[in-house]
Design a protein around this nucleic acid. Structure first.
Lengths: 255, 255
DNA sequence: ACGACACTGTGTCCGCTAGACACTGTGTAC
DNA sequence: GTACACAGTGTCTAGCGGACACAGTGTCGT
């Protein structure tokens, strides 16, 4: 079990062990100067300040005045470090208020609380994306391995939907639906950019393109002139539609 | 204009020029042996076969029997290459059938056609994610710069929603909503993994975790036993709810 | 015709990344 | 008190994106 060469068949098993506290530290040898927790905290601080791209083993180690390779005594790979950072940053699941408030209110609260958390740690929704790219054809995991905190958040969300005639599978699908929307609109909020424009930051470029493309893309061209806040709009619009759709289903099931 | 040191203020302007055909190739000097198109085609082939992680300037150049640096005569950065690859792989926008078929049918067709395209090029939805990570605090662009083909797809989608009492902004928000759901469920389809499990591929690990966590995560634990196809379920469930939500809005507006 | 010059593709280099491995020193268990 | 498991370090590799200098090539203006 603790045989060093008994490597996990997939990388993510390591992250699993770590996240769920299944890695037993030995009592032999010199005392450990650091802890996984401490390393992860530093990582979170760096990512908060400088973004996910600033996270490298070197950088994190330097912040702790240790060498890069020292971190590998605590964490088997960068992916593991990110997993722990993620669960740490997510933190404890929220209180959504009493069930009497109704599922819609509570689920919407959940959504806005996630949004708030992601505003504090804008890199959070991008962690899973990172994992997908450096890996091979099949990434380490599709979505990352979830730690206890993240699972607790999801559990909290699904609990708002129990007793409404939805199957557990449907409950999870619903939470996934909301969460995907949150993730998609988060980047817009963080960076304040249009999700889809003609891709035109420069007036000059805009004119040159618009000239030939107004008939080709009538709706989008008309839209380019609008002055709405796209991030706020997309988030609120989508959330309202999703909740409406869920309400329709629940009404049908409860009827 | 062509002064070499007049660098674009943001990197993405380069991609813009390239995608929209605003880069004028000079008539002087030796003939170009390659073309951006040709390079992008090779890139697409590699990404299709080996995933996005297999795309490196070195790899693409090797496939063409040229040196890595030669590609930089055609493309200013890897980000530009990916942008061109993306637009190439997306291809021409689809035919959604006559307007008489109704907005819901046509929009749903659009969604399934995107899904089909992404099944052919599973790396497509991950391109924007790639861009986010190696960049600085603020990525090259939130969503990537869109090429003509991608813009055309979006235009096609928004066109299904015109004349239904929705503002252009709302039309775009709606399309964004559908698209975000597609993107989120795509990875599940491609890799066939649960989006959210307890993160347990191994029975052994599952048991060890489940032991202590059944009361803590009742809904999810119950779910771990279910045998549904999570990818199909999440996609269909979410799409139905979104379209229901949109229908509700449209009904209200048209009443 | 011819030289100036803009351009293409190449080779070399840099700084960075994740991680493997061998090593020294340290602390505990027998 | 000694054997051994472990902690942290230094060195190394393979790979990445990309800057830059260079040699060869083709097209202009004269």
């Amino acid at each position: 079990m603790a045989a060093p060469d008994r490597r996990a068949p997939q990388d993510y098993l390591g992250a699993l062990e770590l996240l769920w506290g299944l890695r037993q530290p030995s009592s032999l040898g010199p005392k450990r100067a650091l802890s996984v927790r401490q390393i992860a905290e530093v990582g979170v601080a760096i990512a908060d300040a400088q973004g996910l791209a600033a996270i490298s083993m070197q950088r994190v180690a330097a912040e702790l005045d240790y060498t890069k390779m020292a971190l590998y005594r605590y964490v088997r790979s960068k992916a593991e470090l990110l997993a722990v950072m993620t669960d740490l940053a997510i933190g404890d699941p929220p209180d959504l208020g009493p069930p009497e408030d109704g599922w819609r209110t509570r689920l919407e609260r959940w959504a806005r609380l996630i949004r708030a958390t992601w505003n504090r740690h804008p890199w959070l929704p991008h962690v899973s994306e990172w994992q997908a790219s450096p890996g091979a054809v099949r990434p380490v995991s599709n979505d990352r391995i979830m730690g206890p905190n993240e699972v607790a958040w999801v559990e909290t969300a699904t609990s708002t939907l129990s007793g409404l005639g939805m199957s557990p599978q449907e409950q999870l699908d619903a939470v996934f639906l909301v969460s995907a929307h949150l993730r998609a609109t988060q980047a817009m909020t963080t960076y304040g950019l249009l999700p889809w424009t003609l891709g035109l930051p420069h007036e000059e470029m805009l004119d040159r393109l618009r000239g030939g493309h107004e008939q080709r893309f009538p709706t989008l061209s008309r839209l380019a002139a609008s002055t709405h806040d796209p991030a706020h709009s997309a988030f609120e619009f989508g959330l309202a539609r999703i909740l409406d759709g869920l309400e329709l289903l629940i009404d049908k099931r409860m009827r």
